[in-house]
């Protein structure tokens, strides 16, 4: 497959999970290790990403654009953008984090993980299980032992799993 070109810039199409198509400059997606390898090795012009929701993909492309424009003079502005970028409901932030991990966008991954950590650090064990859809695999005896040893781990911030 040959990649299409307009003028000097190569254009690439990303296909989100809802079959929505995003057309962007190839240089932008090189920030993703996964896409970079695909583009370089297979010379594709259209990449399907069925596991990533379009909404998530929109966010990530927005980040890639901003990051490509980053210069020493607009550092402050970029920081503010990053802050706003993760200021979404927790569910969406997790979708973004998973997608970024899949796409291997390293700088953004670290930033997202820190943002998730900041959101969950004060939550109770139950709330964390809910957020990550984890069923406790401890025996009822082990579980009650934990509850006895660290009762505070099971207190507070219980149902607030979305923010």
């Amino acid at each position: 497959m040959a990649s299409s070109t307009t003028g000097e810039k190569k254009i690439l199409t990303l296909k989100g999970g809802d079959n929505e198509e995003f057309i962007l400059e190839e240089s932008l997606v090189l920030q993703s290790e996964l896409l970079k390898n695909m583009v370089k090795e297979e010379r594709v012009s259209s990449i399907p990403l069925p596991s990533i929701k379009s909404k998530t993909l929109v966010k990530i492309i927005e980040y890639l654009k901003k990051h490509a424009e980053l210069t020493p003079s607009n550092k402050e502005e970029f920081k503010n953008f990053e802050k706003e970028f993760v200021n979404v409901v927790l569910e969406e932030l997790l979708d973004i984090t998973v997608a970024v991990n899949y796409l291997k966008i390293n700088g953004l991954l670290e930033f997202c993980c820190q943002a998730v950590a900041d959101r969950i650090k004060d939550k109770s064990v139950e709330a964390v299980r809910k957020i990550f859809r984890i069923e406790s695999d401890f025996t009822p005896e082990e579980e009650s032992e934990f509850r006895k040893e660290t009762p505070e781990a099971f207190e507070g911030d219980l149902d607030d799993t979305t923010n």
Partner: peptide, 22 residues
């Protein structure tokens, strides 16, 4: 991802999330 997130947490939170799952 989970390990990355855990490394970003303060030790205090780790002490409590110890019992989330095996």
């Amino acid at each position: 991802i989970i390990i990355n997130i855990l490394h970003c947490l303060p030790s205090k939170s780790l002490a409590r999330f110890n019992c989330v799952s095996k």
